[in-house]
Amino acid sequence: MAVIEVKDIRKVYTETKVPVYAVNGIALSFEKGEFAAIVGPSGSGKTTLLNILGGIDVPSEGEVIIDKKHIASLSSRQLIDFRLKNIGFVFQSYNLIPVLTAIENVEFILQLQGQSKNERRKRAQQLLNEVGLGDRVNDRPAQLSGGQQQRVAVARALASRPQFVLADEPTANLDSKSTENLLNIMEKLNREEGITFIFSTHDSRVVKKARRVITIEDGCVVSDERIAPNNI
């Protein structure tokens, strides 16, 4: 059963003299437990598609249905709440809160959900242990390497036990060792906890791990390959 479904979505930017179609008639669906990569050259519309899938951008046309909910029918407040409870985000440039420590960054999401301090601390510590940063919980982002920051970002994305995680070029700023490490963590979480991961990437290392590869060019899907049977 599809947890995310997009029907003929278009996203047009009209801020320039000539309208730019970042996404131009894409229809896709993702099922629970997928480990999918959206690939394509720069400017092909990967990030825009991911933003629309995550409800942080609104399509100019078309429908986005997440967990049977039409995103367009949600108010701004409901949408924020929906994202908080159902979607985890990992960004290319980590986007951690620089003034908070690693554990506070992870706890922050849980606080937004209204969890108690003890619960928050326990869950954040557990997640940071899982991503291998149990000994760096009190470090601020500036004290961590790029790979470590991205692992904190993954822990943060998973903190609220989301149905799926959207990761926008998560390995773009990482060296090979950090990339390998991060991908292993995400693959493990996908396999063991059934969390759906959707990446936008043009990193071949990520593509190799993906079990579904969607290629887009000029805002359109040009191929949608399932590399291995979805057995989760």
């Binding site: 924020i80 994202r83 908080l84 409870k85 985000f89 809160i97 937004l112 994305a157």
Partner: peptide, 9 residues
């Protein structure tokens, strides 16, 4: 990013 991850306005 704060808005994206679920911090309301």
């Amino acid at each position: 990013m704060l808005l994206a991850i679920g911090m309301n306005r």
